[in-house]
Design a protein around this nucleic acid. Structure first.
Lengths: 225, 225
DNA sequence: GCCTGTTTCAAACGTTTGTTTGAATTTAAT
DNA sequence: ATTAAATTCAAACAAACGTTTGAAACAGGC
């Protein structure tokens, strides 16, 4: 059993199984059985189950984040002194991530895994993800602020969060969605998905801010009882 | 140890721990240790760990769904022959669910749990949730279609999905969000959250539909290499 | 107080888990 | 071919898991 195969087998299998069932529900024995490698190889190559997860995530997410940042930098160069248009910012954020699905060797597994991971409140995982996103978050946050000059920072942050939820949920359910909505399935699906997601989130970012509901509360109080 | 206490202790503790760490990462021994009850009580009262989760979810979600449906029915009565306004549909969907957070005995636990559960692709859990939402989904789907008469059904479905993602993510991170965005914390927080979520999602639903990216693909192909 | 049904209890069951260990095998460099 | 390092292997370790069991305790009705 060649070593390059062993590591890749473990990584690819872990990616699929973690995506399918979640980190806690997948045992190392499950992974090595499917990958046809030895149980001790996991610790030899990756040190621990937790580190395996980090490696599975980082091996694809890092290049994706580099691509995101490069795309944004290019867009900013093109825009000169003006801010980058909101749709372009969102495209730079979403496309590299969704494009992974088009790789026939990966399919929906990595997307699903990232969607899950983005949702996970486990402290170690969050710490790890924050470090992986340490450049992406501030740069895209600044680009969003610039693209939405009239929107208070607080609102931008809330809407960024809604956007992240929509994105993560879509990552998790990409295959299901296609079947559920009757969309035609071909290699450009992720592009249609991204376009739709941009339409939705860009409009959400640009939505007029409603007044706080505190004023309306006097009217609603009787109905609450 | 009175029996009413035992069941409630288990349910409340399970709710908190499942919300915090996820179903698979919380053992029954973890729950009974925190709840100060006996391990066998779980099987006596609930039959299995899986059933415990269902009970934890259903005990709050059922009244929430009834409230959702009642609110929608009332709005439809008021609207007469016209469709219910989009914002009102979304309000009927979100408010009952977010309002649970305002109960001091519950806090963010149930919201977080529901957010997690809505994201979970586990087959048993999905089946359970589909049955719990068996009336909500078709009725709200129809109300959304009626509120958005010019939007193709396929687009409404995609946008409903984005909306669900934004909602679930917000449920999972309600407490974090408040801290992260510097929003003032008081009893009406969930109402502000819901208002913001409605602003974002309503605008997303009403967004103009972009042309499919296939036409633009010829232009993008060189840049992909 | 007695009887019956309900609930709790501690121990056990059979299985599974992530991690470790030391030997065997393979690989790479000279 | 030899040596050293890297990798794989099977077994073991200590702990943990959901579930089951039969006895003890409790609660309610008569």
């Amino acid at each position: 059993m060649a070593t390059a195969d062993t590591k890749s087998q473990i990584l690819d299998t872990a990616e699929r199984l973690f995506a399918q069932k979640g980190f806690d529900a997948v045992s190392l024995r499950n992974i090595v059985t499917v990958a046809k490698v030895n149980l001790a190889a996991v610790h030899y190559h990756f040190g621990s189950k937790q580190s395996l997860l980090h490696t599975v995530v980082a091996r694809r997410l890092r290049p994706i984040n580099e691509e995101r940042l490069a795309g944004l930098a290019e867009a900013q160069t093109k825009a000169g002194k003006r801010p980058v248009k909101l749709e372009r910012v969102l495209e730079c954020l979403f496309l590299p991530l969704f494009r992974v699905q088009a790789d026939p060797k990966v399919g929906p597994a990595f997307s699903r895994l990232i969607g899950r991971v983005l949702f996970d409140r486990n402290a170690d995982l969050q710490k790890f993800m924050m470090s992986e996103l340490a450049e992406v978050i501030p740069q895209f946050s600044a680009a969003l602020d610039a693209a939405l000059p009239g929107l208070p920072k607080e609102e931008t942050d809330w809407r960024s969060h809604f956007m992240a939820g929509a994105m993560a949920h879509t990552l998790c359910n990409a295959d299901l969605l296609v079947r559920f909505t009757g969309t035609d399935a071909d290699a450009s699906d992720y592009e249609s998905t991204v376009r739709r997601l941009i339409d939705f989130t860009a409009a959400g970012f640009r939505a007029k801010v409603s007044p706080p509901p505190k004023k309306a509360r006097a009217k609603q109080t009787p109905r609450k009882k």
